[in-house]
Design a protein around this nucleic acid. Structure first.
Length: 108
DNA sequence: AGACTGACTGGGA
DNA sequence: GTCCCAGCCAGTC
């Protein structure tokens, strides 16, 4: 249906509700590639100017802000998440299970 | 054209 | 419990 997986990734990321976070693996799995998590991260890195995509809501499975370094300022990701009532300690989201948003379940 | 890398993950040692 | 290896897709050297 989609022209390429990048578009699918972007759409899924855009669907992440405020105050929620998802993981690369979850999105990759939703796209059909369980091991394609790296591609998702790659897509985020390729965002560049697409501020319409809440890339800060995409974390690795452990809830660590692995991609914070790809933002204009490494603190930006943390601040954006904190602005959505998320608690981040040591670049890691607390109560991840409570905020985790899985497209395979939510978009079922 | 061939090989390496990267915002990842799960399984095996 | 920690470390290492293989698999995924696209872009770059």
């Amino acid at each position: 249906m989609k022209e390429n997986k990048f578009e699918e990734i972007y759409e899924v990321v855009k669907l992440i509700p405020p105050g929620r976070v998802s993981s690369y693996g979850a999105i990759a799995e939703y796209l059909g590639s369980k091991r394609g998590a790296r591609l998702v991260g790659w897509a985020m890195n390729a965002l560049n100017n697409r501020s319409d995509i809440p890339a800060h809501r995409v974390l690795n499975k452990t809830g660590v802000l692995s991609g914070k370094n790809a933002f204009p300022h490494p603190n930006m990701m943390k601040e954006k998440l904190e602005a959505e009532n998320l608690v981040i300690i040591d670049d890691k989201v607390q109560d991840l299970a409570e905020y985790f948003w899985d497209p395979n379940i939510e978009l079922l």
